[in-house]
Amino acid sequence: MNQLIEQLKVQIIQQLNLEDVEPQEINEDEVLFGGDLGLDSIDALELIVLLEREYGIKIKNQEEGKEVFVSVRTIAEFIDQNS
């Protein structure tokens, strides 16, 4: 799980163009949206693309995404359960 979390942090930074953010600066339990990272609706859609491309997991719509993209940990748990 920890390895997946660290891997996700790197992928998220890359996918969302979070330049100047280091993986260790992201707390896996902190909320992704509405927090310090300043993520928006396009970022949520990008996370859907990330899960499909890297993990082969499809998320149908933004509503479903909202439940999964709470924090890095919730994403990791979702991947763990669905792959």
């Binding site: 969302l16 396009i42 859609l45 693309v49 491309r53």
Partner: peptide, 11 residues
Amino acid sequence: EAYFPSPSVFV
């Protein structure tokens, strides 16, 4: 086979 259009590019 690797069809991943990106919303942040498209916009």
